[in-house]
């Protein structure tokens, strides 16, 4: 099995799915030259009718994939940064997410909206937003957030084969730096199945993507002082594998949720509510969130770093719970 980067794993998934199903096509800005290499080489292989570069018109992209899906295609749209989806919200939220329901269940809309979130590259306030909670709030959208290259490939394939609109969120910092073994064979990973990244007995840490990496770092540090953390990666937040999380919390009696989005009304708030509802009697301490403070991302890189959860903060939060 080859060790590849996150970008390469995503590229493999797109390649394989386009080869497998000729209804799959890609659309987005600058996807021919591919800013982050995800769509690299696909235009050369599949041509201009399957890799469609658009003007800077996010609303058009978001709506066009809905229209194309309505007539039998399986589009994969790319928004280079999640922040640009704000220019396309009507088409995603009012149109794609709701059409099936509004049409009495008749529409089948196999759409993937791929996009990139997260801070850590000094891109300042507009290019760093993690808005998964906005989309999770809207019925009709599935939300996928892969943590490892292996998962990225398998989950992107599942997203493309799913018959519903899927928001597929990638983490910018992980593209080049997160590596892992990825088979060149065909495989998929079902939605709604969390992965236990590390088994433990003393505390449950729930985190996705780069924050999962940080949680694992924190878990190593905690192990040195005799605290065994169980680190759970939900992999998809809609649908959510609540069972695995609740099961873990019932075992460890403590939970910390780590995410890069702002704390207020972030996805962590939903998790806390669910955990309290389903594992209240098992909790030895209140569930804790370690998240971005409720401020836009500052440009200055020291401030930016302070605005994103760190392993040290997670360790501190866990130690606070253990007292």
């Amino acid at each position: 099995m080859a060790v590849v980067t996150m970008s390469q794993a995503l590229n493999m998934a797109l390649h394989e799915e386009m080869a497998r199903d000729e209804r799959v096509f890609l659309i987005g800005e600058d996807i021919k030259d591919s800013t982050y290499g995800i769509t690299k080489g696909l235009w050369d292989t599949y041509g201009h009718k399957r890799v469609i570069g658009t003007p800077i018109s996010e609303a058009a992209i978001a709506g066009a994939v809905l229209g194309a899906a309505s007539v039998g295609l399986r589009p994969v749209a790319e928004f280079m940064y999640m922040t640009f989806m704000m220019c396309a919200m009507d088409q995603v939220v009012n149109q794609a997410a709701k059409s099936k329901y509004m049409f009495g269940g008749k529409a089948v809309l196999p759409i993937v909206y791929r996009t990139m979130a997260g801070a850590g590259r000094a891109n300042a306030a507009q290019h760093t937003q993690s808005l998964e909670a906005w989309f999770a709030h809207v019925p009709g959208l599935k939300i996928v957030m892969p943590t490892t290259p292996y998962d990225a490939k398998g989950l992107l394939k599942t997203s493309i084969r799913d018959d519903n609109p899927v928001i597929f969120i990638e983490n910018k910092v992980q593209y080049a730096t997160t590596r892992g073994e990825v088979p060149s064979t065909d495989y998929t990973i079902p939605f709604g199945q969390a992965a236990i990244r590390r088994a433990g007995t003393d505390v449950t840490i729930v985190a996705l993507q780069r924050m999962n990496e940080i949680a694992l770092e924190a878990a190593d540090e905690l192990a040195e002082i005799g605290i065994e953390a169980e680190v759970i990666d939900p992999r998809t937040i809609v649908p959510l594998d609540l069972d695995s999380i609740v099961k873990s919390v019932r075992k460890t009696h403590r939970v910390v949720i780590v995410h890069e989005a702002h704390e207020r009304v972030g996805f962590g708030a939903e998790l806390v509510a669910q955990i309290v509802q389903h594992a209240f009697d098992y909790l030895d301490a209140p569930p804790i969130r370690v998240a971005n403070p409720n401020v836009p991302t500052p440009f200055n890189r020291t401030l930016e770093e302070l605005s994103i959860p760190s392993a040290a903060q997670v360790v501190q939060a866990v130690r606070g719970l253990m007292r």
Partner: peptide, 23 residues
């Protein structure tokens, strides 16, 4: 230091801001 190149602004100069969002 909170904005950087893409958000530089000075309302005192009538400069309403660079912008990270095209258009």
């Amino acid at each position: 230091g909170k904005g950087g190149s893409m958000h530089i602004a000075s309302l005192d100069h009538g400069m309403l801001g660079a912008n990270g969002i095209v258009g």
